[in-house]
Simulated scan of single mutants.
Amino acid sequence: MKLKQSLTVVYLLLNIYVFYVGTLQGLLNYQAWTLIGATEFPQLHQDVSQRTLSLFLPFFLLSLPLNFVMIWLRHPAISRGLVILVALLNLAIFIVTITLVIPIQDQLDQHKSVALIEQLVWYHFYLRTLPGLVVLVAIAAMLYQIIGKVTAPSV
Rank of each mutant, 00 (worst) to 15 (best):
H111G: 11
D47N: 13
S79Y: 01
L64T: 13
L61H: 10
T39H: 05
I71W: 01
T8G: 09
F94P: 10
I104Q: 06
Q105M: 10
L7C: 04
Q105E: 11
I95E: 01
I93G: 09
L61P: 10
P65A: 00
P65V: 06
H45C: 07
S6Q: 05
G81V: 02
L57D: 05
H75M: 06
F60I: 03
L64Q: 14
F60S: 13
L24W: 09
T52G: 14
Q5R: 14
I16F: 12
G22Q: 14
F60C: 09
L62F: 15
T39A: 06
V96A: 07
A87W: 00
A87Q: 01
L62N: 14
Q105N: 14
F94C: 14
T39Y: 01
S113G: 14
V114Q: 03
H75T: 07
I71D: 00
S49W: 01
V10S: 04
L66E: 01
L28H: 11
G22D: 12
E40V: 06
L73P: 00
F19A: 12
Y20I: 13
V48Y: 10
A32F: 13
V114H: 02
L44M: 13
F60M: 14
Y30I: 15
Y20A: 12
G22P: 12
N90P: 05
T97C: 07
N15F: 08
F56P: 00
F19D: 04
L66G: 04
P58Q: 12
Q43Y: 12
V83R: 00
E40T: 13
Q5G: 06
G22R: 13
A77N: 07
Y20P: 01
L14N: 11
S6G: 04
L55R: 03
S49D: 07
S113D: 06
L64W: 09
V18H: 02
P76K: 11
Q31H: 12
Y20E: 02
S49H: 07
Q43E: 11
G26I: 08
L61T: 12
Y17M: 03
I98G: 04
L53D: 01
I93R: 10
S79M: 03
V69E: 00
V9K: 09
V9I: 15
E40P: 11
I84E: 03
A87C: 14
L55N: 07
Y11A: 04
R74L: 03
Q105K: 07
I102Y: 09
A92E: 03
I78D: 00
Q110L: 15
W72K: 14
R51M: 07
